[in-house]
Design a protein around this nucleic acid. Structure first.
Ligand code: MN
Ligand code: MN
Ligand code: ZN
Ligand code: ZN
Lengths: 136, 136
DNA sequence: TCGTTTTTTGTAATGATTATTAAATACTAT
DNA sequence: ATAGTATTTAATAATCATTACAAAAAACGA
């Protein structure tokens, strides 16, 4: 535990982010909950441990992590953003029944098309929608 | 012009949508502006032709078209939704400088993975982000 | 310890979308 | 044609996620 905190702290320092208590807690949460949580889920769960926590801090922290490339944001619907600690390229499947977001591996690094020859590609995203096995 | 209106009208009737003047105008707009416009762009442009037009009508109409599968919605950022009259599967590239959304052809129909073997896939989406040639 | 910077917190503002309801229009049957 | 009914549009209010802002708290450095 002590050790884990040190690891998280080091991870933040690597990214030139000052490892405050709240930031470490958010990073810890994202590491333990790799289910693509929303701001609300993160806030409600962490608030039980940190009663004085503010939702603004969650937004600030996530945007900070985003800028440094520590996490990625998933926008499938235009309502709630989901956050992903796994930054290596992979696809997402969102169940339209239970709302759960699943990972699947897909390699888009190989994909190129002459239609985008003059374009500078920074980011590639793939997501499917449908019904998960549990809901079928 | 008269003929075009008839075509659009027939298209709506096919989908069991009553072809009102506003609905035909929105469909006409989407046909002529295949650049993935937002609600605001559609509203502002059509308002010049139809001074009494309401933004609610745009929302209602687009949601109606969406339900019937006549159009598709593009959610790349979580701010403004863009609408696409082209419903056959293709990829989108959003320029982070000018905001423009480009089409490119990509075939995901063939893509399968055993990770999603038990899943019912309804919809597949691909979008890239980066800088377009004009902005480079 | 004092002054400065950073971080957190609380609240207000923003903005896109939806909900609601009344007005306008289209349709139907007498 | 007319009256009554159903549909569509318009205007406005409500919702809700996110951002902006400013004060309080904490960390830092001399
Ligand atoms: Mn993921
Ligand atoms: Mn398109
Ligand atoms: Zn499900
Ligand atoms: Zn551009």
């Amino acid at each position: 535990m002590e050790l884990l905190f040190k690891d998280l702290s080091a991870e933040l320092k690597n990214r030139r982010i000052h490892p405050s208590y709240q930031r470490i807690k958010v990073l810890d949460y994202l590491n333990k909950n790799q289910c693509h949580p929303t701001v609300d889920q993160i806030f409600k769960d962490l608030q039980r441990e940190i009663p004085t926590l503010s939702k603004s801090t969650i937004y600030n922290t996530l945007n900070l992590f985003l800028k440094s490339g520590l996490i990625k944001v998933i926008n499938i619907e235009n309502n709630d953003a989901h956050y992903d600690i796994i930054t290596k390229n992979h696809g997402h499947f969102k169940c339209e029944s239970c709302g759960k977001i699943f990972n699947f591996s897909i390699d888009l690094n190989t994909f190129t098309t002459e239609e985008l020859s003059g374009f500078k590609i920074i980011d590639k995203n793939v997501y499917f929608k449908g019904i998960c096995p549990r809901c079928l």
